[in-house]
């Protein structure tokens, strides 16, 4: 990080003042729930009731990691969806942002608004829309496929592979606009002079973007990917609603069961708050690790 306001200027306490609201609010509202969840993760702790919790040490963690028939499957599902649903879309969002940012495009507002619309819809409506689009008998997707193929209709929401495809499409559809907006804002910060120099050299559009835009966007890409990892590893609502809630546990062969979905099931349906807390902290560790990798790769690319 480059810094210009130095400690030697004796303005030492201003930055602390500026960052203090977060830490004050965190102490008042965030600390107790976090300590509570660390605490419960070491107990056999029922969600509701009068029976006294029993201390089990790391028992919940070892149970989840070595015994539980769903956790690893859920984690694998989450990572697959993270790649297909949350990370790949950056390859679409960046060109999209560049296209919209291009000086020659008219109607920027219209396109920007259209692409961003899915982000502002509630998950429930998104899922209803896609449930209809991908319906086996009445869905527009199978109807279109019918023109090019005579094969049996694909039961999108009832087959393992189909569930993953639909979820990936939903996540892409919902969050591409969001990533596009981040990159649009990032593009505004790239000094125009850099492009002018390249134009004098006669570089092609593609070259220009590879050699100027992408390197300049790296911090924003790091940011966008970090958020995708944080959000993607905690994906819950979309698969939960699309595959039918707790009673279906992610649909056929649990292929829509994500880690957060399983966490919620464990705490709120199986009523094992302690084990649910343990899963939450395991997810936390995975997110930290993946973002460590993200940071490392970004630093390497920045050189």
């Amino acid at each position: 990080m480059q810094t210009i306001i130095r400690k030697s200027r004796k303005q030492g306490w201003y930055p602390y003042l500026f960052v203090s609201p977060f830490f004050i609010l965190f102490c008042v509202f965030g600390l107790y729930p976090i300590l509570y969840s660390i605490f419960t993760s070491f107990f056999d702790w029922k969600l509701i009731g009068t029976s006294a919790p029993r201390f089990v040490g790391l028992g919940n963690y070892t149970n989840v990691l070595t015994q539980d028939p769903f956790f690893w499957k859920a984690l694998l599902n989450t990572v697959i969806l993270l790649v297909t649903g949350s990370l790949l879309q950056h390859f679409i969002a960046i060109p999209l942002a560049i296209m919209i940012n291009s000086k020659t495009v008219k109607g920027k507002e219209f396109f920007k608004t259209s692409f961003f619309l899915p982000y502002i819809t509630s998950t429930v409506s998104v899922v209803i829309i896609f449930g209809v689009l991908f319906d086996t008998n009445y869905g527009i997707v199978n109807w279109l496929i019918g023109f090019v193929s005579d094969a049996a209709k694909i039961r999108w929401l009832q087959e393992s592979f189909g569930i993953k495809v639909v979820l990936s499409v939903v996540l892409n559809w919902k969050y591409i606009g969001w990533n596009m907006v981040i990159y649009l804002a990032g593009l505004q910060a790239i000094p125009y002079e850099l492009y002018e120099a390249a134009m004098i050299d006669g570089a092609s559009t593609l070259r220009k973007h590879i050699s100027i835009t992408i390197p300049q966007l790296l911090p924003i890409i790091f940011f966008g990917v970090a958020l995708s990892i944080i959000g993607g590893m905690q994906i819950f609502e979309e698969p939960f609603i699309l595959t039918g809630g707790y009673e279906q546990l992610g649909g056929h062969q649990n292929s829509g069961l994500t880690a957060a979905y399983y966490l919620m099931f464990t705490a709120f349906k199986a009523y094992r708050l302690g084990k649910g807390s343990a899963i939450a902290w395991l997810i936390f560790l995975v997110i930290l690790t993946l973002n460590g990798v993200n940071r490392y790769v970004t630093k390497k690319l920045e050189g």
Binding site: F29, Y32, P33, I34, Y36, S37, L47, I230, M233, Q234, F236, A260, L263, M264, A267, L273, G276, S277, A280, W281, I283, F284, I287, L288, N291
Partner: peptide, 11 residues
């Protein structure tokens, strides 16, 4: 990165 799903109870 801390999944906040269970925070609702103590909160």
């Amino acid at each position: 990165a801390i999944p906040g799903f269970l925070n609702i109870i103590p909160f």
